[in-house]
Design a protein around this nucleic acid. Structure first.
Lengths: 197, 197
DNA sequence: ACACTTACTTACTAAATAGTAAGTTATTTT
DNA sequence: AAAATAACTTACTATTTAGTAAGTAAGTGT
């Protein structure tokens, strides 16, 4: 009974600390720009400890994408997200990307891995494809309902518009990385201007 | 007089061959995913030969971005581009990105470097910023003229729309990398649908 | 109490990395 | 013809990389 209670988020275990740090480095510097030594040094453990939890970097990378995919599904199905009207679901999505800016201008998972995609292990590639596909399908549904209820406005198919909007958001975080937050705000402002009826 | 004539594009020198191969690898696998050894092996020279032309990888990376910036300026100022009506200038831009698909689905320079941006040498960062800024300014001008002459249609400022469109194009190549050409065509189709009056 | 498992550390290996220094050879320049 | 330069190769170094194997100490289950 005392397995997982009391303090909610105090002292995460090493496995989680590895994932959290690896995720931060992935989104801040890229997948091929950090090593087990970097992780180990910053976590105060030996590199072999990381190999214990994730035998190879491929395993670690795959675990990162898998965790993100789990998070997406959880977030999407959360009552406080799923039960929202389309406009607010869209704003909730914008808020997720906006939140990346505050975290040292991290790019999103997709934007971080797309360029190096061909150097990634096949399972990691597959998970990232699933992640992007499910997110796009979710947004397409949001857009479809939004237009049906006249709260959102756009031409073309919901699927095409969803692909376009998500691509723009991922790219906007990259532009923010290269310049500063301004272009991100400008681009999201443009999206709002066009979509909100 | 016989320094540079006769055959126009036969037998490029080693320096150019290095740049061409490095560019291909950069756009296909990412900046941190190729080494001087890779380049040397494929070019049939020794790694030190590459160090001779580009002492450090930083120098090589910077040279790649600088060359691309020169190309942008040349392309933009070409009579057959500069003298086009806005709609066809926009289509010429689309054609550049579309051309990447045919080259093994290469991402664009910006999309390739954004994720790893913080691992890049400062001069390379600066050149990439300039590249993106000048391209955005060029497109903003195209859009402004297009709307003024009623051949293009959009809400908001030309600068904001230009930032949004370029970001979307860069992202669309990344999505094509992760999935296939289809989403790229879908996204560009959506852009055409919205922009062409 | 004993065996077993978890979560590591210590100590190592083989390969790849960027980079350098000292030649070598062919071509220009003078 | 001699000197200088360009474009390399050979041979090397120091560092970093992922990954492994064997050991250890603290719990956990029986």
């Amino acid at each position: 009974m005392t397995t997982k209670a009391a303090a909610p988020t105090l002292a995460p275990d090493t496995r989680t600390r590895i994932l959290d740090l690896a995720e931060a480095l992935l989104l801040e510097r890229g997948f091929n720009a950090f090593s087990y030594q970097h992780l180990a040094k910053e976590l105060g453990v030996k590199p072999a400890a990381i190999h214990y939890h994730f035998p190879s970097k491929d395993d670690l990378g795959t675990a990162l994408v898998t965790r993100q995919l789990r998070r997406l599904r959880k977030w999407r199905d959360l009552p406080r997200v799923a039960d929202l009207p389309p406009v607010e679901q869209l704003e909730a999505l914008f808020a997720v990307y906006d939140n990346h800016l505050g975290h040292d201008r991290r790019v999103c998972l997709f934007g971080s891995l797309a360029a190096d995609f061909r150097t990634l292990p096949p399972l990691m590639q597959a998970e990232l494809r699933t992640f992007n596909r499910e997110l796009t399908e979710w947004l397409a549904q949001v857009l479809a309902v939004g237009r049906a209820t006249a709260s959102l406005r756009f031409v073309g198919s919901p699927a095409a518009k969803a692909a376009q909007v998500l691509t723009t958001l991922a790219g906007a975080l990259q532009v923010a990385r290269v310049h500063d937050e301004t272009p991100f705000q400008v681009i999201v402002g443009q999206l709002r201007l066009e979509l909100l009826a």
